[in-house]
Amino acid sequence: MSALPAYASTGQRVWHYSFRTICGLIFFFLIFPILVILPLSFNAQDFFTFTREMLAFDPAGYSFKHYEDFFTNPDWQQAMRNSFAIAPVATILATAFGTLAAIGLSQAHVPYRSVIMAILISPMIVPLIISAAGMYFFYSRIGLQGTYVGVVLAHAALGTPFVIITVTATLVGFDRSLVRAAASLGANPVTTFFKVQMPLIIPGVVSGALFAFITSFDEVVVVLFLGSAGQKTLPWQMFTGLREQISPTILAVASLMVAISIVLLTVLEFLRRRSERLRGLSPS
């Protein structure tokens, strides 16, 4: 498939190029919606489409006004502050609990392993609307509905499965004799964990944390039900904006969020390569 052999027939040639065209179109479908919002976010008009000036590359058709609006509008600023107040705390909780549990789960003898795994992974599988409904009912019973703590706890619970999966994956390649070696040299379990095990599994922990962060940072369904006006996050603000068609500032926010995704993707790719190198696998 990779290259067309010299002896290919006309039919094979036609198929080869039409297949590539089809794939090109699908890639276009995948990436175009994300790329199109970047230029539109610099629109000088309050439209959601390209104006005549923009198509003519007239500088007058472009402006930073939507970005300015984002950085000056108190609603958006409050939403951004809330997002950054909720996501890191939820990430820390999810990563700390998740890493410990993943280490526990990777031991040789764990009773009821599959049941425990099913429970721990469940927040990832249950549809968000059901999690949101259940949490809304339950948290309003215990007085956590509409509070910062409630939202943080919910987001931490939603993020833990990702930490477990990434850390468990890293631990598969972890050589357990290193722990025994450390112990035989006189290190206590805590020292062994922080000096030997932790540095080796840190890429998995960090990518798990990134997943947990993005889960909380992008999450809108649960916060929509569980939060009150005081916990309005960026996705929530975008959701309201999209439903009520308020302003193209949403496109500026969306572009900034795409930038954040690119940074995260780069970091993750870097971590993946590093951990493969550490485990002695050749980078693909």
């Binding site: 526990g104 009773p111 059901i130 259940g134 339950f138």
Partner: peptide, 28 residues
Amino acid sequence: REKMRALLLIAPLLLFVIITFVAPIVDM
């Protein structure tokens, strides 16, 4: 002892998920 250690490591998260996530689903 090994089993206990594994369970002790898992216990905090298990409790956390049961309280924050499983209990709400059961409540539903």
